[in-house]
Design a binder for these strands. Sequence first.
DNA 1: ATCCTGCAATTTTTT
DNA 2: ATTGCAGGAT
Length: 687
Amino acid sequence: MTPPLPLNPAQREAVEHPGGPLLVLAGAGSGKTRVLTARIAHLITALHVAPQRIFAVTFTNKAAGEMRTRIGQLLGADPRGLWIGTFHSLSARLLRREAPLLGFGSNFTIYDSDDSEALVKRLLEARQLSTKVYPPRSVHGVISSAKNRMLTPEELGAQLDTPLIKVAADVYAALGPALKQANAMDFDDLLLHPLTLFREHPERLAYWQDRFQHVLVDEFQDTNAAQYLLVKHLARQHGNLCVVGDDDQAIYGWRGADVRHMLTFQNDFPGTKLVRLEQNYRSTQIILDAANGIIAENTARLGKTLFTEKKGGAPVTLLSSADERDEAEWLANEFARRAADGEAEYEGMAVLYRTNAQSRPLEEAFRFRGIPYRLIGAISFYERREVKDLLAYLRLIANPADDEAFLRVVNVPRRGIGDASLAVLGRAAAAWQKPLLEAARRAGSVSDLRPNVREGLSGVAALLDRLREAVGQADPATALETILATTSYEQYLADEGADGMERIENVRELVAGAAAWAEVQDAEAAEGTGTPVERYLTQAALITPVDEDQNEPGVTLLTAHMELAEPSRFLDALPPEVVEERSTTPSWKPLRGSGAMPPRPSRPRGAAARRLPPDVGFPEDVSQDAPRYVKGERVRHRKFGGGIVRAVSGEGRDLRVSVDFDDPDIGTKQLLVAYAGLERDWEGEGA
DNA sequence: ATCCTGCAATTTTTT
DNA sequence: ATTGCAGGAT
C-alpha cells in the first residue's frame, strides 16, 4: 500500500468530510482529481464503505480508468465493484440490468450519432419529407437538445412553430417506438431511461438509492438537467452527494450543460458543506494573475481566487502573426529553443486551439523541425469504416433487431443488394412489425424482390445465424476473428487496393485491441451484466477520441473548446502587467489598446486581429482555420503527390487552389483547401 | 436494379 | 478525408 496522498487543509477537509452534501469549488490545477481519488479511498478504508456501494462520475472514460488505478494504488488492491465512469457508461451499466422493465432486452444496442441520424433520415423519408429541406443532422440536433432538456415530443412541438421544429417533433414522436423496436438506445436515452425507470418503478429507485451509499460527481459544472436529476435521485435519501466543479470552467453549455447547477446545489441540498480549493499547484503567480483577470469577467459565480506559491514567473506572451502557418512556425521554433536550452521538456508543452482543423499547420511545422508531438482527439479509430463494419456485424450478432447495423452490413461485402431492394424489404418489415434481419430471413415470401436479391437476403440471415451460433459466449476478439473468417472481409478490403491494405492493418489492430480489453476487464464480469461481447460493444460505443491512448511522447496538441468564442473580450481582460506582446513580423504591431495601430473603427479585435496580415495584399476576413496559399508555391497532396499552385480563388472556407501536379497523368486539379489536406512541399522547395 | 466513377458538400466542441 | 449523389455502364 502506498502512503496516503499529501493534502493541504482545504483538500483534507473535502476528503474527510464524513457525509452529507458537499460542494467542492475547485480552481484549475488545484488538485481536484487528487481530492476525488483520496476521498473515494478514504470512504473505503476509513469509513468502511464497500466499493460496490460507491457511484463516481467522471467526465471521460480515460479519467475513470486513471482514477481507478490510483485508488487501487492507495488501497493496495483493485477497488473491485466500484462504479466509476462517465454518466453514459454508468447509466448503460445500470440499464443492462433494468432494460426488461423498460421494454428493452438487456442486449440493447447503443446507437451513436451516425446511427441516430440514419434512423432520423429513414423516418423523414417514410413521411415523404425532403431530407434536403430538413437535414437529418439538424432534425436530430433539435430532437437531441429537446431530450437534453427533458421535453416530450408534444412539449417540443408546443415550443415554437417553425417548420423545422414541427418536423422534428413529429419525427421525435416516432423515434422512441422505432428505437424500442430496434432494441436500441441513443446517447440521450442512456440518460433519460434511468429517470423513466425511477419514475415508473419506485421500488427500483429505492433499490439503487440503497445500493449506492455515496455518490460523487466530477466536472459538475458541465452536467445537464437529466444528469443532475439522476444523481439527485440516487442521493436523495442519504444526501451523501459530493460534487466537484469549477463554475469558471464550464465548456459544454452547447450540449445542454447548465453551470447554474453549481449555484443551485446549495438550495437543492440544504446544509451543504462548501469547500474552496484555491491553491494552484501548476502555474506561476503571473499566469494566475492573467487567469484571475479573465475569470473576474464572469458574472454569477460562486467566486474564488487562485493563488500559488510559485511567485513571479515569465510573463504571458501575446503573439500576433501573419497567419496560422507563421504562428505554427514561431511556436515550433520557440518550443525547439526552450527544449534545447533545457527550460522544459517537450512532454511538458502543449498547444490548445479551438477546432481540430487547426492542428494541421502545427503538425507540419513540428514535423519539419523534427519535434515529437501527440495529437489528441482528432479522428477516432472507431470512426473508421472498416471498424464500424465489423462492429456492426458484432452488434447484429448481439442484437438481431439492430436495424442500423443490418443496413450497414447487408451489402458488405457486395451481395447485389441495393437501395431499391432494401426499400422493398423495409416495407415488408414494417408491415410485419419485424426487424429487417427477420424480414430478410423471410425474403422468399416477398414477391416484389427479384430472385437473386431474395437469395442474397436469406443468405445474409443464414450467415448471421451461423455467426451467432459460432460466436456463442466467446470473447470479442474470437468473435471478430470468426466474423472475418466467415465473411472474407479481409479479402474484400484487399480487393480495394493500396488503401485496403491500410484498412486491413486497422482490422488487425481492432482484434488486438479487443483481446487486450478482455485481459484487463473482469471487474464488471462479477455482476453478470451481459455477455463479453455485449460489454465490449458498450465500451466501444462510448469511447471517444480523447479516451484513446496515444503513447507517443512529445508536445501535446488538443482543442480548448468554447469559453474563447469572443477572444477579444478576454484579451482585453488580461492584466497588462503580466502580458508581453510580441509579433512574428517586426514591421507590424498588434494592439490591444491604443498605440501604433491606425484607428480603424471596424477592426476586429482579439484572435481575428492577431491574424491580420502584416501588409497589404490579402483580404481581411480570411478563415481562421485554413492555411493561406500563394501562386507559384509548391505543395504536396497525399494522393496526387507534389505540384505547384497556379491560382487561388474564393475565401474562408471556400478557398480553392488550382494545382499543377508533377505527374502528367494527374495534370491540373481544383482543390478545396479546407478539405484537401495539402502540405507544403519541403523537398521540392530547395531543388 | 446495381455498381462504378467523378463531383459536390461537409466540421466546433462530445456522449 | 469521407460521404452522398448524379449519371452512365453493365
